[in-house]
Design a protein around this nucleic acid. Structure first.
Lengths: 148, 148
DNA sequence: TAAATAAAAGATAAACATATCCTTTTATCT
DNA sequence: AGATAAAAGGATATGTTTATCTTTTATTTA
């Protein structure tokens, strides 16, 4: 439903939100999130281009979040790497439909709208707070990874 | 959000629902739905295997719907060709998470649940009825294709 | 200024989804 | 029975996503 790339991007962003103390390198994030390192590098590049994260080159460089978790909807993360595309005109290119979708494509597009709305209204902060039994990305249930 | 294959399957099923008089061949359906004919052939095969449609070989054969449009949720069509997969256990394979999803993956899975629910409750009949300006798959707004 | 560090960029490969083509099987009609 | 129609199945091709590896560029520190 959402692409592997989006999943990776979400993991990376949550990871950075959990460890806001300093920039983290691609290698670090890759290890923590279990995302293939060189692939993650491309993902982070896209996130930086869309100003979801900020990159810093050189020694002690790495990536940090560009916004507070409260101000960062998951949708922004997803759209940075794999933009949600709405159906705006008839996929069959029927001339009489044009921009007015038939029931079928309206229904499909409604589902896209729903997903978008859900991700627009859920911020990264929402993921961090409300701790359940499982801490995102962390193996242990009692300690944050940053504590190691 | 939904695959090209699912879109094709939905088109084919709606097409058959619009023309319930007799079996229709792959070639006919392909022409009406603007789906590549040989690819559609595989799609219809999957739909038949999942008993969404019924195939009839030989002269005057083709495909018909296996159920009344009222009894056919769009979800069944989608699941026949490209099953919606839920997140059931931690994608990072974190042992302590196991089957108890963290907030991140719960959120993503919730979106999958939402989509599934929407498609479960929308039947093919819903697509046919409530005519808007555009008739599904039909270029003309005044005549059903079957009338040609 | 030199060395070390880390992101950026580019090139290549593997896996998967989509699409096409060709042959075989099955049913129907005369 | 023979001819025809149509689905079923198999093999191959194209395109896109995902993944890996290497080189280049920018930054920091000593």
């Amino acid at each position: 439903m959402i692409s592997q790339t989006s999943e990776y991007a979400l993991r990376a962003v949550v990871c950075l939100a959990q460890n806001p103390d300093k920039p983290h390198t691609t290698a670090e994030i890759a290890k923590w999130t279990k995302v293939p390192e060189h692939y993650l590098s491309k993902v982070l590049l896209a996130l930086a281009k869309h100003e979801v994260v900020i990159s810093k080159k050189g020694l002690h460089g790495g990536y940090v979040l560009a916004h507070d978790p409260e101000d960062l909807p998951l949708l922004n993360v997803i759209n940075a790497v794999d933009p949600i595309k709405h159906i705006k005109s008839c996929p069959l290119k029927l001339k009489t439909h044009g921009t007015h979708l038939c029931r079928l494509h309206k229904q499909v597009n409604d589902s896209i709208d729903m997903i978008e709305e859900l991700f627009r209204t859920s911020t990264v902060a929402l993921i961090l707070n409300e701790p359940t039994q499982s801490i995102p990305l962390c193996e242990s249930v009692t300690t944050q990874r940053g504590a190691n």
